[in-house]
């Protein structure tokens, strides 16, 4: 057991080293884009206010009445913030596929060496899964810290009389996008991450199917993915089937969904283990 954990740690560390460049690039792009947003957005507002005051011979108060005050919400509700988030999501989606295929493609077939390691092959699976989640949570954590640093930056740039009293926390809570990627509401955050985790496990299984059976694996994967999706959304149709929208309590439907998602995840893990140990080819 201890040996297996050490192997998992070693492999995760190894995968993390391979992820590093990609992760640091994403973190860098995020911070840089955020920084531009924190500076550019308030500067645009200030120049608009100044232009209005000079062209209209208006006072600061009149300009304020015309444009409204500036809040941190305006600074974070821009593409400079949502862009890197979208990039991060799509980046890790891509990396979840790349993390497997890189072992087969390239100068040497590295998969051969990995699969020959004297450890349970599922350790490979878990190390790749863990490293993706480490990357995702590092990105989220960086985004959170960026908000609070950005708030100080915006407050320093913006004249206090033009700045609305919105706190960093309030500005974050206002944006519906952050409801899902930042723990604004723990329930939503857990639901989204739970769905995301099952999605990645199923995706890994599909990749292993393709690696095991080639073209047949792709067909098998499509059928498997369709079946998993149908099963996952089936609780939403229970009301229609029973022709009564109150036959089940919301908590019961939620528990059924959690049960089904767990079933899908466990099935995918078992299928993946079977494929990794018995079927996979190099």
């Amino acid at each position: 057991m201890k040996k297996n954990i050490k192997a998992l740690l070693d492999l995760t560390t190894f995968e993390l080293d391979r992820l590093s460049k990609f992760l640091y690039t994403l973190l860098g792009v995020t911070l840089l884009a955020n920084l531009i947003g924190y500076i550019r957005t308030p500067m645009q507002y200030i120049s608009r206010m100044n232009e209005f005051m000079s062209t209209q011979s208006a006072t600061s108060q009149q300009a304020l009445e015309n444009f409204g005050s500036f809040s941190f919400y305006h600074a974070i509700n821009t593409m400079w913030i949502s862009g890197p988030i979208a990039l991060g999501i799509s980046g890790f989606l891509f990396y979840a596929v790349f993390i497997w295929y890189r072992e087969w493609f390239g100068k040497n077939t590295f998969a051969y060496r990995l699969l020959m390691l004297p450890i349970p092959r599922m350790t490979l699976f878990f190390s790749k899964l863990i490293v993706i989640y480490i990357g995702i949570f590092s990105l989220i954590a960086t985004q959170i810290i960026s908000f609070f640093v950005g708030f100080q930056l915006v407050s320093a740039i913006m004249p206090s009389e033009w700045l609305a009293g919105t706190t960093a926390l309030e500005a974050i809570q206002m944006n519906p996008l952050f409801m899902y990627i930042i723990p604004v509401d723990t329930l939503y955050f857990m639901v989204i991450n739970g769905i995301g985790l099952v999605f990645i496990i199923v995706l890994f299984t599909l990749i292993l199917m393709e690696r095991s059976f080639a073209l047949k694996g792709i067909v098998l994967g499509i059928i498997y993915a369709g079946a998993a999706l149908a099963l996952a959304v089936s609780p939403f149709f229970i009301d229609s089937i029973l022709q009564n929208y109150y036959m089940l309590y919301a908590s019961e439907i939620l528990l059924i969904i959690i049960g089904i998602m767990t079933l899908i995840a466990v099935t995918s893990l078992l299928v993946s283990r079977h494929l990794l140990t018995k079927k996979i080819t190099i």
């Binding site: 740690l9 480490i134 590092s138 954590a141 959170i144 930042i182």
Partner: peptide, 20 residues
């Protein structure tokens, strides 16, 4: 050799729990 791994996990956990 685990420094990077432990650091990144600690960074994520501390930031998210601190924010919450």
């Amino acid at each position: 050799k685990y420094t990077k791994l432990v650091s990144l996990i600690a960074f994520g956990v501390l930031t998210l729990s601190g924010y919450t």
